[in-house]
């Protein structure tokens, strides 16, 4: 009961945050120089000034900014209740609702984010645990160096170097896209070959993070009394590691999952750009450049909502997994 109230209150608090974000994004994206109508009619020589004015009027771009914002809010959040569908939340370039366009690309981004998450867990967690148990060894030193350098690599540079080495020189993996053109979309091996490099590049910082985190956490756990008791009982080393130390060290990792997924989805922007992965980030970036305001709004609001929700889920997960943390 108390926790239900807590969740409701957190969700309620999220509303002003998201409103402020939408106002900020709306104002900033429209302050930028450039006019979408001029951009997409570029090169049309038979266009008169009147045509341009008419087009601007059609999209509501001639209205004062607050009116435009209200129009967008009513259209995007309240689905045009009590009036015919407005163009305010429709893509200027595609003439379709921006949310729908974004939704079509969401699957691709989620694929990438989940694959990266999987790599982070499969590589980062064992690395950290091994480093902790072999503290001071060569493996430990390697993991610690890796944990710092994984953060220091510019993402796009790593991506481009991998393309250069793996795709261009060794010809092992494809360098862009979801799957080979002409292949069946359920050709899973082909899709895996395509997703491997972008997922790894997206995962690298997280792998570094996890290995470092797990190392500290495991070191803390194995210095506690119940581990000594387990050893004293004569349990095998493996049993101690797997069912005593590992399970306890994993608690913070599990609670952080939601937040990490949100970070991956928004962090995918650059990776998507490098590997021409048709996802939400790349789409939003293209919209910023072409001044397709409704898509910019949809993209930023989507990513922000995901982030806000993941903060809430993280806090709830903390209090569920570790009852010592009060939900206050």
């Amino acid at each position: 009961m108390r926790s239900l109230k807590y969740i409701l209150r957190r969700l309620l608090y999220a509303i002003p945050t998201l409103l402020a974000i939408s106002i900020l994004t709306f104002a900033l994206s429209r302050l930028a120089p450039g006019d979408p109508v001029r951009l997409f009619t570029f090169g049309a020589t038979d266009l008169t000034q009147q045509d341009i004015e008419a087009l601007r009027h059609t999209y509501g771009l001639d209205q004062p900014a607050p009116v435009q914002y209200g129009d967008w809010l009513w259209s995007a959040v309240f689905f045009d209740v009590g009036r015919p569908p407005s163009l305010a939340s429709q893509s200027i370039l595609y003439h379709r609702p921006a949310a729908g366009l974004l939704f079509e690309r969401l699957g691709n981004t989620l694929q990438l984010a989940l694959a990266a998450l999987l790599l982070q867990l499969l590589i980062g967690v064992p690395l950290g645990v091994i480093a902790a148990f072999k503290r001071g060894s060569l493996t430990d030193k390697f993991v610690r160096i890796f944990a710092v350098s994984g953060h220091a690599l510019p993402t796009f540079w790593l991506g481009l170097m991998l393309i250069y080495l793996v795709s261009v020189n060794l010809r092992l993996l494809p360098s862009q896209g979801l799957l080979t053109i002409g292949h069946d979309q359920w050709d899973i091996p082909d899709r895996l070959r395509h997703i491997l490099m972008p997922a790894f590049v997206l995962a690298l910082a997280g792998i570094a993070n996890y290995s470092r985190y797990l190392r500290t956490e495991t070191l803390e756990v194995i210095s506690q009394d119940f581990i000594r008791t387990a050893h004293a009982k004569g349990l095998r080393e493996r049993t101690v590691i797997v069912s005593h130390a590992f399970r306890n060290a994993l608690i913070p990792v599990v609670t952080a999952l939601g937040g990490i997924l949100a970070v991956l989805v928004s962090g995918a922007l650059i990776v998507e750009q490098v590997f021409t992965w048709p996802g939400v980030g790349q789409f939003t970036y293209a919209a910023v450049r072409s001044k397709d305001y409704p898509i910019v709004m949809a993209g930023v609001m989507f990513a922000s909502t995901l982030l806000v929700l993941s903060y809430i889920i993280r806090d709830i997960a903390y209090s569920v997994v570790d009852p010592r943390i009060k939900a206050s």
């Binding site: 945050t17 930028a32 962090g267 930023v300 922000s304 982030l307």
Partner: peptide
């Protein structure tokens, strides 16, 4: 508010 917008999107705009 600032922490709830993914940084790269905000910087982009």
């Amino acid at each position: 508010v600032l922490n709830s917008i993914p940084q790269i999107f905000l910087l982009l705009i």
